Computed example of a mutant assay.
Amino acid sequence: MRYLKEKVFVALAVFTTFPWLISFFVGIKYSPPFEAFIAGMAVVGAAFLLSWAAETAEMDVPRSLSLAVVALLAVLPEYAVDMYFAWMAGRVGGDYIHYAAANMTGANRLLLGVGWSLVAFVAMLKTRKKEVELDEGIRLEFFVLLIASLYCFLIPLRGEISLIDSVVLIFLYALYVKLALKAPREEFEPAGVPAYFCKLPVKKRRVSVVILMLYAALIIFISVEAFAEGLIKTAENFGIDEFLMVQWIAPLASESPEFIVAMYLVRKLRVTAGINALVSSKVNQWTLLIGCLAVVYSIALAHPSDLPLDARQREEVLLTAAQSLLGVAIIIDLRLHLYEAALLLSLFLLQFVYQSVEMRLFLSFLYIAIAVPIILRNLKEVRKSYEFVRTLARR
């Protein structure tokens, strides 16, 4: 049967949402570990449905609109988790203030340290080359990521994510979207599940997309609290650092569809599309995601307020900014070499060898010490990216 595999994937994604959907409406209570597991599986399943629906929607909406909307929908599960922590930080306070920053830094570092590296490794295996070439269009993401990374070094120095930071970073994201609408992009070529949906008659396809989006949004809405709280209570029960659980396990679930979709594109030899998808996600999370934290926190408090950071969170934000700077340096020449991908992954994993203040500060210094000489040596590439952005702005 044609597209049997794709139909099975859709059925599996929907099936993973059923246990929590039924439990939520029936009112069944579970132990924290099991509740976190089934709610997390629901978030992952919904994330896949949302990703497939968003990509399929590119067939029916203007290309410029799809670039802005689809990119945001793809990371909605990660936003839902982090915005929940920011909301609870304003309503309840306490450790939730730490969790909001923890989830944000974990998501960003996981995306760059693991996502970029593993997708690059797969691309090199498929192409039998020791480097991945990126297209000129990535210069926009590079330049925005450079500006955002440099700006975010100010956050740990002040010890808070302020509403001014929110204005700057959200404006930077809005500017990025505006310029992205003008940038040349790879033509839309659906693959996998979206290819199946795109072959449906127009009316049936559009109805399917709307249903999938609404269903995925519902699942994420009813699952995010149980998933987040289940992780926290599980960590408490087993004597695990709640900060680490929120920082790594929550983003691993919400980011997984992005990784898998990027891997799928690379396996189909759409290497540029796969790498670009993760770089674009990094820009999205390193601007809009951070910018929204203080806004949601203020709404929850019912008055304007900056989101405070304690010493641990300041170190985490510093480390994340330093890693982002190295990511910028690595793609500055529009190439991602084998040794660079290995470096990103190795430094990311090194933080788990020793969990200490000294290690976080050492890694931050090491990221910066490696990144700055590369950027200075390639200032010509920075200027090229600046000119590329200026050209887009004039269109």
Rank of each mutant, 00 (worst) to 15 (best):
F197I: 12
I164P: 04
K233Q: 12
Y367I: 01
F238S: 06
Q285S: 15
Y339T: 07
G45S: 01
A11I: 13
A107F: 01
R360D: 11
F121C: 01
R139C: 05
R314V: 04
S281P: 01
Y84H: 08
V357E: 05
V210F: 03
G94V: 07
L345K: 04
E258Y: 04
R109D: 00
N108Y: 00
V75W: 01
E78R: 03
I211C: 00
Y386N: 02
Y339D: 13
E55Q: 08
S280D: 02
S280L: 08
A46Y: 12
G113P: 06
I374D: 01
G93N: 04
I161M: 14
P251K: 07
L21Y: 05
V279Y: 14
V246Y: 10
A100V: 03
D165H: 13
S208T: 09
P190S: 12
A102H: 09
E160R: 15
V202M: 03
L319W: 04
F243H: 15
V75E: 03
S64K: 04
A101D: 03
T320P: 01
F9K: 13
L361A: 02
W87H: 05
E141C: 13
A321S: 15
T127K: 11
I170F: 10
V328I: 15
E136S: 06
L252N: 07
P184I: 07
V26Y: 13
K130E: 08
V81E: 06
V14D: 11
R312N: 10
L376A: 05
L318R: 15
G45P: 00
L366E: 05
R2P: 14
R267Y: 10
D241E: 02
E160H: 11
G159V: 06
A191R: 07
A174G: 14
V317H: 04
A300F: 11
A216L: 03
R360G: 00
A148G: 14
S254C: 09
L200I: 11
R205P: 02
A46Q: 05
R128A: 09
Y79V: 03
G230M: 01
A369N: 00
E160A: 15
I28Q: 08
L4H: 12
E58M: 14
L125S: 09
D306K: 14
I97K: 10
L349E: 03
L200V: 10
S66V: 00
F34L: 13
L252S: 15
V246A: 09
T287V: 14
M245K: 01
L379Y: 06
R390P: 11
A102F: 12
T234C: 12
T16E: 02
L307G: 08
S256M: 14
N378L: 06
F365S: 07
A294S: 15
S324H: 06
F15P: 06
M83D: 02
L366D: 00
L50F: 09
V296H: 12
L345P: 00
M359V: 07
V283M: 13
R63N: 10
F37I: 09
V202L: 07
T272N: 14
N378R: 14
I299E: 04
V202E: 04
V279K: 14
L146D: 13
E358S: 06
E136K: 14
Q351L: 03
I155P: 12
A80V: 11
A53E: 01
A393N: 09
A217F: 03
V317I: 09
E136I: 10
A341D: 05
R360E: 09
P194G: 09
L318M: 15
V92D: 07
Y173M: 11
